[in-house]
């Protein structure tokens, strides 16, 4: 613990606290308080308009028997299982290509990053047109090569793949992180591997991947968090649920319970369950990757 505070130190402390107080207040009012309140409400029957009534673990018990909750969870996991690896793979491949010394490299880098800064609502509207069953550009292209495209947004079996495909487009953020990591890989490693006769795929697998493993791990964790909270695209492109709830995602179901059905207590409970799921998955990813992630500094 610190020793005596002189008068000057004390004043400095107060000034310091004073200067960061906007953040402290902001966090307390808009972060900490809602967080604690939502935990309390999750044990309540709460419809926003009336005072919350404590009901113990009833919301959590109901969730266990709620088929819509399970369907939403299944849809979300389905989406995550395909979209996270696909996104990571695509981002890594693009990052590797953007890391080559080719003419106009910065133009390509900008072009691949650009989709990430387009507002999601606008992107979703464009995808709706691209995947429209009758007029769509995608189906037009398919018809040119003799294929009949599916009802991307109307066929129960296709809506989740459609959402996965349309999500892969916006991996700019992931690409940038990979790109930074790739530039940290010492050239000398590649040179010595080349002397030993290693070809490109071998170099990728034995040098690049281990050396950028912290970036892969980081992007994986961010991917899990992002995918499990997917909201905007299903909400805009499929009106929230899609045919027969085939595109009802966890976050959308939570929103419906909170604001459409006024089951705010139940929605808060759902939010905490999602939090626990994300914590467990992140912990799992950390545990699995502990052996495989190489931090240069560790020796």
């Amino acid at each position: 613990m610190g020793g005596a505070l002189t008068r000057g130190e004390r004043q400095n402390l107060l000034k310091g606290v004073g200067f960061i107080s906007p953040w402290i207040i902001g966090f307390a009012v808009f972060g900490l308080y809602p967080l604690c309140a939502s935990l309390y409400y999750s044990f309540c029957d709460y419809d926003v308009l009336n005072k919350p009534a404590y009901v113990g673990t009833l919301n959590y018990q109901e969730m266990v028997g709620d088929s819509v909750f399970w369907k939403a969870l299944y849809n979300t996991f389905y989406f995550a299982v395909f979209s996270i690896p696909l996104g990571l793979f695509m981002a890594l491949m693009i990052a590797i290509m953007l890391n080559q010394s080719v003419r106009g490299r910065s133009v390509f880098r900008t072009a691949y990053f650009l989709p990430s800064i387009v507002p999601l609502i606008g992107v979703s509207m464009i995808w709706m047109w691209l995947f429209n069953g009758d007029y769509s550009l995608v189906n037009f292209v398919l018809s040119r090569i003799g294929l009949t495209g599916p009802g991307w947004l109307t066929d129960e079996a296709w809506v989740k793949p459609t959402l996965i495909l349309s999500g892969v487009w916006q991996v700019g953020g992931t690409i940038v992180i990979f790109l930074a990591a790739l530039q940290d890989v010492p050239r000398s490693l590649y040179e010595s591997a080349e002397i030993d006769g290693a070809n490109a795929p071998v170099r990728l697998w034995h040098i690049t991947v281990p050396m950028i493993s912290p970036a892969i791990y980081f992007n994986l964790v961010m991917g899990i968090i992002g995918a499990l909270q997917e909201f905007v695209r299903p909400f805009v492109m499929l009106g929230g649920t899609g045919p027969n709830r085939s595109a009802l995602f966890y976050a959308v179901n939570l929103y419906q319970n909170a604001f459409d059905y006024l089951n705010m207590g139940y929605a808060c409970a759902m939010a905490w369950v999602l939090f626990v799921i994300i914590v467990l998955l992140t912990w799992g990813a950390t545990a699995v990757s502990r052996k495989h992630v190489y931090y240069g500094g560790d020796g």
Partner: peptide, 20 residues
């Protein structure tokens, strides 16, 4: 001899937070 200043701090900081 850090008691008095500790005391002063415990008084001052809540006071500041109270103001906020």
């Amino acid at each position: 001899d850090d008691r008095p200043s500790d005391k002063a701090r415990t008084v001052q900081v809540p006071g500041l937070l109270g103001t906020l």
